[in-house]
Design a protein around this nucleic acid. Structure first.
Lengths: 134, 134
DNA sequence: AATAATTTTAGAATGATTCTAATGATTGGT
DNA sequence: ACCAATCATTAGAATCATTCTAAAATTATT
């Protein structure tokens, strides 16, 4: 592991996770002012290839990186904010239904975060929401 | 609804779903040879804003569009192929744990598709797979 | 130390998506 | 039917995220 790979791995494994490449780049630059964006991409890709970190994809937004420890996410439908949450493990339930083994799963729950609820007005019905959407 | 919006909505709601903007554009061009890519983006965004279609995001790949009827996806970790699947509805389970109402959820299960399993050799251990990953 | 292998760098290139400004079509009011 | 207002479409430039390329620097191997 090179110094860059090591530090990038550390950065991703901090609590304020879900960082974009750009954000990771800025933090890394504090320690190594001469580092270049391509290096961050290279190392993140390598770490991801080796499954040492995780990649989260959200429509429209740049990819984000996350620590590998199993957890789920809630996502604000309005502002896109991503927050960690720990739902009960679904592996067994899904394996039974899938009929075979699988590698992993990714669960995102969409809601409207408190901030957005306030801004949008408590009475307003967001996006024609119905319970059975999706 | 304009003719473009209507046709794009139809296209997305066909079974061979999960199309990229580019693919939708090509199909649409068969009917309306003069249509332009920006129009496809405009209409897909509008349909998505009004929650008439769904957007799927996968790291690296361009966004894909999907019909709104609730279903889940299995994704090949190796080639990225996306297939529909219908797991049992988790709304109630999750709502209980979340402690509140939410809008929807998105569940992706990662596995290695039969084609890739063949190509990679049945014995090979994919990506240092462990059962509790993610 | 010499050579090979790997990483980093800088910047160009690519791909996806949005933006802008002009033009064209549709709709509502009189 | 006419005009204004609104909305959709077009073309192309602009932007943003990401990858690629080739050279330079660093690290590991013999």
């Amino acid at each position: 592991m090179t110094k860059y790979e090591k530090r990038i791995y550390e950065i991703v494994n901090q609590s304020s996770s879900h960082m974009t490449v750009e954000q990771i780049y800025h933090i890394l630059k504090a320690d190594f002012p001469s580092v270049v964006l391509a290096t961050v991409y290279n190392n993140l890709n390598k770490l991801y290839r080796n499954r040492l970190i995780n990649k989260i994809s959200m429509e429209g937004m740049p990819d984000r990186y996350d620590r590998i420890v199993k957890h789920d996410h809630i996502v604000c439908q309005n502002c896109g904010k991503l927050t960690d949450i720990q739902f009960e493990d679904l592996t067994e339930t899904l394996k039974k239904q899938f009929g075979a083994d699988f590698l992993s799963y990714d669960l995102k729950v969409f809601y409207v975060c408190p901030d957005c609820r306030k801004k949008l007005g408590a009475d307003k019905n967001i996006h024609g929401y119905t319970n059975s959407m999706y």
